[in-house]
């Protein structure tokens, strides 16, 4: 599974403080630790408290680029910040994210095309996140069509079926799983599927358990990628074991160790 590390996000206190005090060592340490733990890319989000998101995004990416060239997921809702971020992050990074609204797609997809970025697209529109799989898939199909129109290969499109916290929207988990499964039927080659995993456990008492259980279920239905906390070792172990049981890697007694040596 492709893993995008979620830790460089201004909603976490250590990150917002690091941004405020321009303490680049904290950010660089977070980048390195997540990559060592198995992240294939790093999410970068300045957080809601940022007074100057454009400057902060520029600073974050610049200091991360001092320690790694791995892909970044530029995580912002602001167009100007997105453009700045993608231009600095370089080709192969992720636009995180667009929704399924046409006006959003028409603004953001050209940016992805311009900077040769992959696209994370949420199956939501003006009225929010639909409760069932059918409506999510309809939005996904529209996103795929828009991507094709804008000349973005479907393999570089990551559909996020948007999981809501289980304590407020319990029905959604099944709808998300069904969407992940059926996304592969939209076109050939199919789009990839992704989850912002930790949303599922917001407000629950045992967040790690909810996260890893849902991740394993989603993997069984074909999930390709997730934005998650790679520093949660048990979560990573569950992911590695699930992939093993799905036959993606050859078993050996030290399969966890073997996966990490990849």
């Amino acid at each position: 599974m492709f893993i995008i590390g979620e830790k460089i996000n201004g909603m976490f206190k250590n990150v917002s403080e690091a941004i405020a005090t321009k303490n680049k060592l904290i950010i660089q340490e977070l980048a390195k630790k997540q990559l060592e733990a198995g992240a294939d890319a790093l999410d970068v989000n300045v957080g809601p408290a940022s007074a100057d998101p454009l400057k902060d995004m520029e600073w974050l990416i610049t200091v991360i680029r001092e320690v790694t060239g791995m892909p970044l997921a530029v995580d912002t809702t602001k167009l100007a910040v997105m453009e700045k971020g993608l231009s600095l992050a370089g080709p192969g990074s992720f636009l995180n994210s667009t929704s399924g609204q046409k006006e959003k797609l028409d603004l953001l997809l050209p940016l992805a095309k311009k900077y040769n970025s992959k696209v994370i697209a949420l199956t939501m529109n003006k009225s929010g996140v639909p409760a069932n799989a059918e409506a999510r898939l309809e939005i996904a199909a529209n996103i795929v069509a828009a991507a094709m129109e804008h000349g973005i290969e479907t393999e570089n499109l990551y559909i996020d079926a948007v999981i809501l916290p289980v304590n407020v929207a319990q029905d959604h988990a099944r709808a998300v799983l069904e969407t992940i499964k059926q996304c592969k039927l939209i076109c050939d080659p199919p789009p990839k599927t992704i989850l912002g995993l930790s949303n599922v456990s917001q407000g629950t008492l045992n967040r790690p358990l909810v996260d890893k259980t849902f991740l394993v279920m989603a993997l069984a239905l074909g999930l390709d990628a997730a934005i998650l906390n790679p520093l949660d070792k048990e979560l990573m172990d569950s992911m590695i074991t699930a992939e093993l049981l799905l036959g993606k890697n050859i078993y050996c007694d030290s399969y966890l160790d073997a996966y990490r040596k990849k």
Binding site: I250, Y251, C252, D253, S254, D257, A258, K261
Partner: peptide, 14 residues
Amino acid sequence: DINLEKQLNILITD
């Protein structure tokens, strides 16, 4: 045995 094959490689690299 493909599983033992992989395991021995890991033991050696360890």
